[in-house]
Amino acid sequence: MMHKESGRPAKKQVTVTINGKKCPAEEGEILLGVAIREKIAIPHLCFEPSLDPYGACRLCMVEVVKRGRKEMTTSCTLRAAEGLEIVTDTPEIVKYRNILFELYLAEAPKSEILKAMAARYGVTKTRFLKKLEAADTLDNKCILCGLCVRACNEIMGAGAIGFVNRGPYTLVGTPYGEPTKDCFGCGACVKVCPTNAVEMEDTGDTRIMKSWNGTKVPLSKCDCCGEFFAPKGLATAALARVIPSLKEEIAVLCPACRGKRIAQEEIRALSGGAGHHG
């Protein structure tokens, strides 16, 4: 389906106002992205520019004037238009945001990142009952932002993890809480997680996805230096999309050794083949 408008013409440049500051933006650009570029702090936990807007963490609330009325809305779902004006820290927003931070502190009491983030906004304790579960594979740090699930499904197309249950019982995990064969071991989940909840570890020829119930993924060994580098399954999946001449090289060389080889070839080409291109 026409989900993302592809092949669209170059976007119009517009000016939006954030906290009184005029900022240039592309028409239709996500406001939170503009604010990040302009170094205007808006707390956020579920935003990732390469994924569709999701609007789940609710921390990026801003005030916007729409049709003459002030409205609160999430800046990660708001799109730039000429003359758009937002304010990021009204007393109302601060009031609600602080409660949201308190809810997060209760939901993921072990996340140091979250504690530091909340503290930056003046919230250091929560009045709500903390959730502490000994058996939590995500070590009581997950805030269900969904970034790992979305990266796994939408970017990698692996679908190894998903949401389980609903409402307050929701959690992120593998099917039936068992090790899963669908995981490439790409580690995108580890990378996107805003609270460092997802853990993995490489030991020898194996990558262990600790948070995904000990899912094990074999690693490829570099022909040149002998180090284990990328997960095998990932290489196979990635290779399917790559031009044939590169395939072999990627499969057998780690990025460092491949870098060396490219450099060597480049040098050889420069010295031996000057005037090659006329």
Binding site: A56, C57, R58, Y104, E107, L144, R166, P168, Y169, T170
Partner: peptide, 21 residues
């Protein structure tokens, strides 16, 4: 409402739970 919350956003998922508590 707590039982019917889909669990996506924090005020509904966590907030209702604490309201119920």
């Amino acid at each position: 409402a707590t039982g019917e919350s889909c669990g996506k956003c924090v005020p509904c998922r966590e907030g209702l739970k604490h309201a119920l508590l």
